[in-house]
């Protein structure tokens, strides 16, 4: 697959990547995109066919090569974050129970035991 199919360069320094919401959740895309906010201005919009468009405008000093590499990184990060979100969904409930239980006043903990 060629790189241009993954990243679209709309004008010099302005890029778009489209992600299908059938595969990725909005949370995963927000989380992955946020990691680039030190080097890009990031805008996320709904896109056709149940997708999201992530538009990235490079900030000062970022070269075209670095920008493309960073955006390729975003594609991997989105996948990574989707795995994290899936894990979170599977374990989030237990996480809450553990936290609640850990911070229960001692008297209540004793009652539970």
């Amino acid at each position: 697959m060629q790189q241009k199919e993954l990243i679209e360069e709309l004008s010099p320094g302005l890029y778009r990547v489209v992600f299908s919401l059938d595969i990725y959740s909005q949370e995963a895309l927000l989380s992955a995109s946020q990691r680039l906010n030190d080097r890009f201005v990031v805008k996320i919009d709904p896109w056709e066919n149940n997708s999201l468009s992530v538009m990235l405008q490079g900030k000062d000093g970022i070269s075209a090569d670095d920008a493309k590499n960073a955006i390729l990184g975003l594609i991997n990060d989105a996948l990574e974050d989707q795995v994290r979100m899936n894990l979170m969904e599977r374990t989030g409930n237990l996480r809450e129970i553990i936290y609640r239980h850990a911070f229960l006043p001692l008297e209540e903990r004793k009652k539970n035991i």
């Binding site: 237990l94 129970i97 553990i98 936290y99 239980h101 850990a102 911070f103």
Partner: peptide
């Protein structure tokens, strides 16, 4: 035995905090 794991983790977390 998820209950036991939850109990142990919550005790350890309480100690850490």
């Amino acid at each position: 035995d998820v209950d036991l794991a939850v109990e142990l983790l919550s005790v350890k977390l309480r100690s850490k905090k």
